[in-house]
């Protein structure tokens, strides 16, 4: 049999979801040309940027056959913490009266570090006490939410310094700064996944944790680092979302963890572990955002859009699983 012969079934299994989205985007573009306008595309990219950072964080957890339910709440914490650090000095509703706003980059780093500490705790429970990721991250989700409520007193934050909000409105080479941040994170993730020990260890743990340990992989340390890194990314995403909306509340990022896990799996990060690339996360997030936007432009009932998202997840995962089931 000629292996290179075009096989429609394999093609559909490999690219089915992408084909659906391309057809949908083309169709929407024809029906309402505004969909593919520069401003709308930029808006889409802006929406994708924070989502991509979240998805790249969660991808590490999913590649090790885990998950992270605390992502959404850590995004909320990151957003609020960034807000607290970056309010204008003369803003009347200032969280810390009389304080000065921090340097924006420094604030982003502080947010990432604080969130990483929480992620390290989650990861430690998973690695050292064998708490399943689903439960460990669930517990952290509740704890972070509670802390965030206590600290902010459930009051929304606003009055940010322009240097911060500029990240969303300002552009470099026609592209918003937030998108550049996402690109930078994607590059860093690619580097970590492919060029460092940590990345190789991550894939090995996902493929077979026992075999990885026997091969001398520091499994526990790697797991802690994966969850800490993921939480740092969520914190950054919270920081980005705050810049985009010019404010933050405790409910920022609510439910984003599910969307991010869904996006990863749509893009080809296998929930059974060991498989998944940076490009998988990018494709997954793009599919998700384009689908949402296209349905909106087509005037589909906003409530019905949720059903469409669910159906896409079903199709994507059923097809993805086919790749591995068939091989047995």
């Amino acid at each position: 049999m000629n292996k290179k012969a075009f096989n429609l079934k394999d093609f559909l299994i490999n690219y089915g979801v992408i084909m659906i989205i391309i057809i949908l985007v083309a169709f929407t573009g024809i029906k309402s040309p505004n969909f593919l306008s520069h401003s709308n595309l930029m808006n889409l990219l802006l929406n994708m940027s924070a989502r991509l950072v979240i998805a790249l964080g969660i991808a590490g957890c999913v590649i090790t056959a885990g998950c992270d339910l605390s992502a959404g709440r850590i995004i909320g914490m990151g957003g609020c913490l960034a807000g607290i650090l970056l309010q204008k000095a003369d803003y009347s509703g200032r969280f810390i009266q009389g304080g000065k706003p921090m340097n924006v980059i420094l604030a982003a780093l502080v947010v990432m570090c604080v969130c990483a500490c929480f992620g390290a705790v989650t990861g430690s429970f998973i690695a050292f006490l064998s708490v399943p990721p689903f439960i460990s991250t669930l517990a952290m989700m509740e704890i972070v939410y509670g802390l965030n409520l206590i600290v902010t007193n459930a009051t929304p934050l606003g009055g940010y310094v322009t240097a911060y909000t500029n990240l969303a409105s300002g552009r470099f080479l026609m592209i918003p700064y937030l998108v550049w941040i996402a690109i930078l994170i994607a590059c860093i993730s690619w580097f970590i996944f492919n060029m460092t020990r940590h990345g190789k260890y991550m894939y090995a743990i996902g493929a077979n944790p026992q075999a990885a340990e026997v091969a001398g992989v520091p499994v526990k340390l790697t797991m802690v680092m994966i969850y800490a890194k993921a939480a740092a990314f969520y914190g950054l995403a919270g920081f980005m979302l705050g810049a985009k909306s010019g404010g933050a509340s405790v409910n920022l990022g609510l439910g984003y963890e599910m969307e991010a896990i869904a996006a990863c799996t749509i893009g080809g990060v296998s929930v059974t572990g060991g498989r998944g690339k940076v490009s998988s996360a990018i494709i997954g997030v793009a599919v998700f955002e384009f689908l949402k936007a296209a349905l909106q432009f087509l005037g589909v009932n906003a409530n019905a859009q949720w059903i469409a998202l669910g159906i896409i997840i079903y199709i994507a995962i059923s097809l993805d699983i086919r790749k591995y089931v068939a091989k047995k």
């Binding site: 894939y203 493929a207 077979n208 075999a211 296998s270 498989r275």
Partner: peptide, 15 residues
């Protein structure tokens, strides 16, 4: 606890 099933020969050797 030997092979890393879904990874390549290279990754299995290099680990």
């Amino acid at each position: 606890n030997g092979i890393l099933g879904c990874l390549s020969i290279k990754d299995n050797t290099g680990i």
